[in-house]
Nucleic acid binder design. Structure first.
Length: 800
RNA sequence: GCCGGUGUGGCGGAAUAGGUAGACGCACCUGACUCAAAAUCAGACGGUCUAUGACUGUGCCGGUUCGAGUCCGGCCACCGGUACCA
């Protein structure tokens, strides 16, 4: 009988769908396991061969967990709001909702074809009003708790399209679509106070099991630094407050720099007002791209007529404005210590400012000496002779004592810009009332449905398409009943994905985002796998929302995900990213048609290290197909014996151990290699495997290639199914062969191998080695001065 | 610049914890089967040489060790993140 993968796979997929084999049951007595993968964006291009990599991985883990006796939740859904769909809709003049529906249908069909054990009854779609009702509800809660606010901030503005662009749409300072230059423009935007959670987001990383690079990336992104704030008096009478991490170098501060946007500038009337105003205008016009391009060349203008006083030395020092100081970090002002800061050194050199050494150990004539471990404080009055660390503490103490500063902590993390001037997103459920200001919609009015519009394009003034709908905008104030207008901005794509994993636990709940019972049973997520590109956005955002929901008593745990792993990308055969424009996309449908879903699943896991980038190979796929053919043919003739055969027992016990361990450590490639080696053994030995051997092979294979495993299971008349068979235990003692191959080295060089009984003592191994013909010849006439034995592995003879 | 990662055959990649480098697979080669091919099965498969043996080999240079892909010191290349964060 031939391995008819198409018929077999359809047969089992239909059965699983009809019998809801993989439905997750809330409140089951068994221990729960919640496995999660990032839900896809349903693009018009459909699934490509990179998508199934993480899905197959977590499907394997989930299938193993079920066999281990867990109640498993493995859900799938669609993150469907967002720009590509909107752009596609504009281009093809189809409503985004229709585009979304069609794309989801395609994705669902493709996913089902691969035999994942998802609970499809829990499938969610972020654009479904029943779903985004709760996204809006969370926003209202954030607003109620003072974590959502409106602020005027600079946004990316395309000078040709006359619209606001998301950061991702700006490529090298130009508009991604039309190529026109992008400048910055102030616009009023909704913001979320993620910064209020900065410390907790950092601290709680210690409580979760994320791959280290994900933690590091989040830590860097949050960017905590401890330093001091210091007040500098000015001759204008105002106090200029700075933040520094090097308060130990205060005696070396020879000038100050404030950002072009610093608020004191509006108050001061320096002698060169016009020059300063001009610099401010120039700085405002610069795009992010220009700012970074010009990063090496420092520019700035001295504020004439106003000087600051260094509180340590009492000396007057000049004040500059320069765009190398950012308005958004610290206090927007710095004390410049050119002797010990690279940027200050460059600026001082350019403007001919004094450079004073206050930490010895470097050569400040050549470059700034910024090492903060070595070096001794000099030229610093009461701190001379101290180490940098001691001087920091001493200065902090002195500042506090003087009442002009003290220890401060700063974060790089900024608040989250939450508005988009776009159509295809969740409407923000706020109205603007002349009398009452920003007023939240009452919960009873949720969901605030996204209305149909004529045109999905951003308006000429850069407003959302919703701004062109006066009938929808006009409403009454929920508070005072007077006339009011609706917010026309929508939420960013990150909104719906910040809490979707909670909805999976109870996806059809009409009264809450999920019942407490479901949340208590399923959360937190036990294992979450996703792309590294989401580490600083999605992963951080969802941790923030989760902590907030925890604070207001909605969810039971402070962290959403207990374990986080990440997969590498699959590149096209040419080594480039798969993309429609390059025409190098591999469609999983083609692979399934040619080789079957089980082969695709195996190959995508066998392709290489799961965490690393892998290059697709259309020829290598058939190695996995060959393997399944060999498994199929093997099962057709074996010995009628339900126990493990003596010949294969040790190899099987080793395989149970290896495959099980490898699945836990994302080493799917070596797990599959182990199964291949086992099957090769069954062939090589010319000694047929027993029925028991076959059963064990199918059990281990089932998570990887579930269709063929079930089919063969049924053909063999094994009881139950491969999917419900308990995951086998191995016996450590049985993994070991009674005879070991021992490497024989002479002077550290391999000269041969001998067979020795298991755990043979040193003398036995030595005598076996000496009896070996070749070894005998090599050591003949020489004296063995030393013998090193590694038990069951190696013997090394040192001869003279 | 800073942070993280990676360098192993023609190719994808293995190698607990310093102990037989190259598991497993692809490609190529040889043989069996076949009229032939495909498929299948069996075997060979890092390089060099004076080839039943020896030397050499895990990005480069040096070190520790009986023994180094693995540890230490110093470089180089590539990939990812981030970027004037005071």
């Amino acid at each position: 009988m031939k391995y008819e993968f198409s018929r077999i796979e359809k047969k089992w997929q239909d059965k699983w769908e009809k019998e809801k084999t993989y439905a997750a049951k809330t409140g089951d007595d068994k221990p729960k396991y919640y496995a999660l993968i990032e839900f896809p964006y349903p693009s018009a291009a459909g699934l490509h061969v990179g998508h199934p990599r993480p899905y197959t991985a977590m499907d394997i883990v989930s299938r193993k967990r079920r066999m281990q006796g867990y109640s498993v939740l493995l859900p799938m859904g669609f993150d469907a709001f967002g720009l590509p769909t909107e752009n596609y809709a504009i281009k093809n003049k189809i409503h985004p909702a229709i585009v979304t529906r069609d794309n989801i249908e395609t994705f669902t069909k493709q996913l089902k074809m691969l035999g994942f054990s998802f609970d499809w009854d829990r499938c969610i779609d972020t654009t479904d009003p029943e779903y985004y009702k709760w996204t809006q509800w969370i926003f209202l809660k954030l607003f109620e708790n003072g974590l959502a606010y409106k602020a005027s901030i600079p946004v990316n503005w395309c000078t040709s399209c006359k619209c606001v662009l998301a950061n991702e749409e700006v490529v090298n300072g130009e508009c991604e679509r039309c190529g026109a230059p992008v400048t910055r423009r102030e616009k009023s935007q909704w913001m979320l106070k993620i910064t209020e959670y900065a410390q907790r987001l950092l601290d709680d990383l210690d409580t979760v099991d994320y791959i280290e690079r994900a933690k590091t990336q989040q830590r860097n992104w949050i960017g905590r630094s401890v330093g001091a704030e210091i007040d500098f008096k000015t001759t204008a009478g105002d106090t200029l407050r700075v933040f520094t991490t090097r308060q130990d170098t205060l005696f070396g501060a020879t000038y100050m720099v404030i950002s072009p946007e610093h608020p004191l500038l509006a108050k001061w009337s320096p002698d060169n007002l016009e020059e300063i105003a001009e610099y401010q205008t120039e700085a405002a016009k610069k795009s992010d791209f220009e700012r970074t391009e010009l990063a090496k060349d420092k520019t700035g203008v001295e504020i004439q007529g106003i000087r600051a006083i260094n509180p340590a030395t009492g000396g007057e020092i000049p004040i500059f404005i320069s765009d190398y100081v950012l308005a958004t970090y610290g206090t927007g002002a710095i004390m410049a210590v050119p002797g010990h800061d690279k940027r200050d050194w460059e600026f001082a050199k350019k403007f001919g400012l004094p450079i004073i050494e206050v930490v010895s150990g470097g050569n400040i004539e050549e470059e700034a000496y910024s090492d903060n471990q070595l070096g001794t404080i000099v030229n610093s009055g009461f701190m001379n002779g101290l180490s940098v660390d001691d001087a920091k503490a001493e200065m902090t103490r002195w500042l506090t004592e003087q009442g002009i500063g003290g220890e401060t902590v700063n974060f790089k993390l900024r608040d989250w810009v939450f508005s988009r001037q776009r159509y295809w997103g969740e409407p923000i459920p706020i109205v603007h009332c002349e009398k009452c200001g920003h007023v939240p919609l009452p919960e009873s009015e949720l969901p605030l449905i996204l209305p149909d519009v004529e045109n999905y394009e951003t308006t000429d003034t850069g407003e959302s398409p919703l701004a062109a709908m006066p009938d929808w905008i006009a409403t009454t104030c929920p508070k005072c009943g007077g006339p009011a207008s609706r917010e026309t901005d929508t939420m960013p794509q990150w909104a719906g994905s910040s809490w979707y994993f909670l909805r999976y636990t109870d996806p059809h709940n009409k009264n809450a985002l999920a019942s407490r019972e479901a949340l208590d049973y399923w959360t937190p997520v036990d294992w979450y796998n996703g792309g590294m590109e989401h580490t600083t956005l999605h992963l951080l955002y969802s941790r923030f929302w989760h902590k907030f929901l925890y604070d207001i008593g909605i969810v039971p745990t402070p962290e959403p995900y207990m374990k986080r792993t990440s997969h590498g990308m699959i590149l096209a055969e040419d080594g480039q990213k798969m993309s429609k424009s390059l025409g190098n996309v591999v469609n999983p449908n083609d692979i399934v048609d040619a080789f079957g879903a089980d082969t695709l699943r195996l190959y995508i896991m066998f392709i290489g290290d799961f965490e690393k980038t892998a290059i697709w190979s259309s020829t290598a796929v058939k190695g996995c197909k060959r393997f399944l053919d060999r498994v199929w043919n093997l099962a057709e003739n074996q010995l009628e014996d339900d126990t493990l055969s003596a010949k294969h027992e040790a190899a099987i016990h080793r395989a149970i151990k290896k495959v099980g361990d490898d699945i836990e450590h994302l080493k799917f490639n070596t797990a599959i290699a182990t199964l291949m080696a086992l099957v090769n053994d069954f062939y090589d030995d010319k000694e047929l495997p027993s029925k028991g051997d076959i059963k064990m092979l199918l059990t281990l294979l089932a998570p990887f290639a579930p269709h063929i495993a079930e089919e063969l299971w049924e053909n063999q008349d094994f009881s139950g199914s491969a999917a419900t068979e308990p995951w086998p235990a191995y016996d450590e003692r049985k993994t070991i062969e009674s005879e070991r191959e021992i490497a024989v080295q002479i002077g550290g060089k391999l000269r041969g191998t001998v067979m020795a009984p298991l755990d043979a003592d040193n003398e036995t191994v030595l005598s076996i080695a000496r009896d070996d013909e070749r070894i005998k010849r090599l050591i003949d006439g020489k004296e063995i001065v030393r013998v090193i034995v590694v038990k069951n592995k190696l013997i090394n003879l040192i001869v003279k």
